[in-house]
């Protein structure tokens, strides 16, 4: 029991420190306190937003966009990244190409996306898919190109056919890279969300922040940012759980 309390304390401490620093900055007089809403005011605002403005719906809409964007982006990145990583010669020409597109900030593409995909849901998803795909595809092909061919040879000497090598050796060795790609893509997708919701979104955390900034509603902006952080954190935690479960064999995971 005591241990448990200590653990909770350890996890909570940095958060409490941030809240304390937040109050500190506000009270110190260094900043105009009108520009820094108090933590309790932000909390009250979030309750209000939940109760009356459908904040839950905004969270849901944004999460769904990120989820679909990452799912589709990674579903494309896994086979493409696999092929690039598997065939060494493909990597040589794909590498600069992928890095070129990955380096483009998704925000810069918004005008084009509007032209080609309009301003509805597909446009936002396209941006998120784009960001997830390029973040994931690199992780995939870097990982796959490092698969040790020794394991394939061993399997062949034990009598494995080509398809058995694929199912029983290559897939298990690819799973860690898929999970890493997912985590990287999730991070990038949340970062891109606000940009994608700039495309005239009605709902979503990004658009909520966007609208609030028009009317200078700082507390709403804070609520939006904190919600994005929390949901992203939860998703990452869930993925990490998955990783420890599936990758117990890896040197760095578990004991």
């Amino acid at each position: 029991m005591g241990d448990r309390l200590k653990r909770i304390g350890l996890v909570a401490a940095p958060w409490l420190a941030i809240v304390a620093a937040w109050y500190g900055v506000r009270e110190s007089g260094l900043v105009n306190s009108a520009l820094v809403p108090a933590p309790h005011a932000v909390l009250a605002k979030s309750v209000d937003l939940f109760a009356r403005q459908g904040l839950a719906w905004d969270i849901f809409v944004s999460t769904r966009r990120v989820f679909i964007g990452v799912a589709v982006g990674i579903a494309l990145a896994v086979p493409v990244g696999f092929l690039i990583g598997w065939f060494r010669s493909a990597k040589a020409f794909a590498d600069p190409l992928v890095n070129f597109f990955r380096a483009l900030p998704p925000i810069a593409l918004i005008p084009l996306v509007i032209v080609y995909f309009g301003v509805d849901e597909p446009a936002k998803l396209v941006i998120l898919i784009y960001a997830s795909f390029f973040a994931g595809v690199i992780v995939m092909y870097e990982g796959v190109s490092q698969i040790n061919p020794l394991f394939i040879r061993v399997a062949r000497t034990l009598g494995a056919s080509q398809s058995e090598v694929f199912r029983k050796v290559i897939i298990p060795l690819t799973v860690p890279h898929i999970l890493t790609a997912l985590r990287v893509a999730l991070g990038v997708a949340w970062a891109t969300l606000v940009a994608s919701e700039l495309v005239a979104a009605q709902r979503g955390l990004g658009s909520m922040i966007q609208n609030a900034s028009t009317y200078f509603l700082l507390d709403v902006i804070y609520v939006g940012i904190i919600c994005i952080g929390l949901v992203a954190l939860l998703m990452d935690l869930a993925l990490r759980r998955l990783s420890t479960r599936f990758l117990a064999w890896q040197d760095r995971v578990g004991a």
């Binding site: 034990l158 058995e164 064999w249």
Partner: peptide, 21 residues
């Protein structure tokens, strides 16, 4: 050349799960 993603038992059994043997 042991397979790191399989347990000791699964490593030994690997060849026996293949069609060839």
């Amino acid at each position: 050349g042991v397979f790191p993603w399989l347990t000791v038992r699964e490593n030994i059994a690997f060849g026996l799960t293949l069609k060839a043997n």
